[in-house]
Amino acid sequence: MVGLAVVFTRDLLKATMLFAIYSLTIAALFALLDAGDVALTEAAVGAGISTVLILAVLALVPRHEKTAKGHNLPALAIVIITGAALVYASFDLPVFGEAGNPVHQHVGPYYIGETYADMGIPNMVAAVLASYRSIDTFGEAVVILTAGIGVYALLSVRPRRRQRREPEQ
């Protein structure tokens, strides 16, 4: 419901606040599902930093969204076709939460069984992130650095003074 409100509101400040509430709700949902790491990330990044950054962007752009007249019918058709294809494909997915599903048969059991013997630490998520899948995490760190460089490159140029149109009488 909060998500729908985010989509429908035209006031970007309101949308930002609703989006933060949405993130916090999702974080609570993750916490209920015992996914502590994901919940912590969602609460800190989704509800906290993203909101602050979006607010910082909102300080640079006008507060209200421009309304576009009319509807884009081809876009609607594409969305409906894609959605129908995804729903059709979801019928082939294995039953949710069953022990024999492929996702539980691959490397998961090894991590669950051997993490403590290999590392002596109880948090499997940290073990998978930093040790078993270390190169992935290295890539993520590089991606973050690249994002920082990108923002720096875009915003370190001073804005040029534009000729403002005089307000019409």
Partner: peptide, 16 residues
Amino acid sequence: EYSPGGGFQAGVLFAA
């Protein structure tokens, strides 16, 4: 390594 968390979350908290 003992409780939920890690570098990403800690970095974000610190920056916050």
